[in-house]
Each structure stands twice: as C-alpha cells, then as structure tokens.
Design a protein around this nucleic acid. Structure first.
Lengths: 140, 140
DNA sequence: CATCAGTATTGTAATCAATACAGTTTATAT
DNA sequence: ATATAAACTGTATTGATTACAATACTGATG
C-alpha cells in the first residue's frame, strides 16, 4: 500500500476523520518528511507556521491516523515513538551508534507461521538493529 | 540460541557481569516468568523476597543484560519496555484488545534484503499486532 | 585474613514523553 | 443561520526511566 498526501486526505474522509487545518498540516508534514519524526519534531516543525498549535493536537492527530491505519508507529527503543506514513511495506534499521533509522525493503508477507492460525493479524513489523556504514567507518 | 538460567550465569561470567545476589534473582525471574514482564513487574515480583531491592537496580541489571545480548527488549508500544531472555528466535504478537503478548515461531533469518549490504546487523525483530482468539471470541 | 579499589546497590530527585481534562473554537448537517 | 458534535488549546498530571551521591559489597592482592 502506497500512501501519498492526497491519498491520506481521501482515506481520512472514508474513515470519518475530520479534515481540520491542523490535521492537514500534520499529514502534509509526514508526507514531506520521511525521516520517521517524533511527535516533538512534528510539533516543532509546524510551530512556525501554526504558532497556536498545541502539542496535544499533534498527539491526538497521530493517534487518530494510527487508529485509521494510515500511519505506522515505530517503537524501537529509547522510549520515544516515531511515526511513518504507510508507504509500501518496509522494515526499519536502527543504528545503535548514531540513532538514525533507515528504511529497507523486505518481503514481510513471506514471514509465515502456523502458530498464529487463529489470530487476526492486522499489522506486521520488522526491525533490525546494528551499526550503519557511516558509524562503522568511524570506528576504524 | 537457547538460554536457560544456568546459561545466563555462564554467559554473564564470560561478559564480566558480576553475579550479585540481585542480578541472580533478576535472571532467575526472567527464566521462570516467560511472560515478557516489565521492569515494574520484575521489581514487584522480587520485592517480597528482597525487601530492600531498588527499582534502579532492576533497570540497571536489565540494561546490563541487554547490552550483553542475553536479554531482548520488546518495545511494541504503550511506552513500556518488556523483557525476554533470548531463547531461540521468535516473533511477538501483541493483542491490541487485551494487551497480551504471545510468542510465535518464525524463521527470521529468511528475511533478507539487499538494502543493508553494508550494514552491520546484530539484532532482528519481528512483531505482529491484531486480535487474539480469546478476544475475537468475545466480540461475537 | 585485612585492606583496598573498583563495582553494584539503594533511595531520592529529576526528566520527559504522553495523556487527562475543562474551556473554547471550529466544522458539518439541518 | 443555528445547533451539535467533534477538534483544539493550554495547563496540570502521570508514570516509566534515568541521574546522582552515599553506602555496601566483591574479589584480588599482599
């Protein structure tokens, strides 16, 4: 599933998410900053344009989008949640040295298991951890 | 890799983790409670036996074991970290209705990608979300 | 077995992401 | 236009995790 800004708006209508100015801006931010931002980053980024924006609004919007299945929560560690609009399935690699999160293509549907036969699975996540090339380089 | 309580102790020695009474108890707790406990649960569970136990000690022990690669952090959501001794590779399924976390067998090594050729990967995680059979039942 | 240095533990205080809540504003239907 | 339900704002609160400084322990050495 690939989701663009326009798709987000269309999907939001279908899911009965009201398109307030703030929500549009949050979605626009997510679409144009594919860097797995935290709620804090989104808030800071939009604050310039919307000085009255409340952090609570950012959180509630993100929660609404996650519930609607339009946005994915990335919760690898560090006790902070990052967000990612749902483009096509991909995994996340977190560098334990610099903290950066990289996307990588992976065939998640190839993961099968008999153990979950009676389970209703609606979200599959894959993440790796390790050291990115830039940080590996530094160690030498 | 399968890790029992005895293995944990042996591995700890190798990794220069001093085997204090508190650390032994934390490891014992993890080995005997394969329910993905939180630090809080471990603390509460051990408090009876070790009334002077400090929560800080639980956290620092867990961090030491994670750094040594003996324990896995499970960070699915809810802003709380759960811990799991590293038995053989398996995925985690979180029921979004009751919050329970189930293990399932999955061949994580079958996940391959060319995107991470130059990356040093030292940890692979898979987690699914959805509804467990018990909760699906209730909805009818 | 006494001492010493280096770690681990403890308890309190601080941090900080996330949420609750109540009052105000906005959006959509009639 | 107006009503009503939903969204926004800002402050206060929560709660998991960490920082820190004082105390206690461990295990190596003489």
């Amino acid at each position: 599933m690939t989701v663009s800004y326009d798709d987000l708006i269309e999907e939001s209508k279908k899911k009965n998410i009201r398109l307030s100015y703030q929500r549009m801006k949050v979605m626009e931010y997510l679409s144009s900053h594919l860097i797995h931002p935290t709620a804090e980053q989104i808030y800071a980024g939009l604050r310039e344009e919307i000085p009255t924006l409340s952090k609570t609004t950012v959180y509630s919007t993100l929660n609404a989008l996650v519930d609607a299945g339009l946005v994915r929560m990335i919760n690898i560690e560090d006790n902070e949640i990052r967000y990612d609009i749902k483009t096509q399935d991909h995994g996340h690699f977190k560098c334990e040295s610099c903290g950066a999160i990289y996307d990588f293509n992976v065939d998640i549907d190839s993961l099968t298991t008999r153990d979950l036969q009676d389970f209703d699975v609606n979200d599959k996540n894959v993440y790796f951890k390790g050291t990115c090339p830039a940080c590996s380089e530094k160690k030498h």
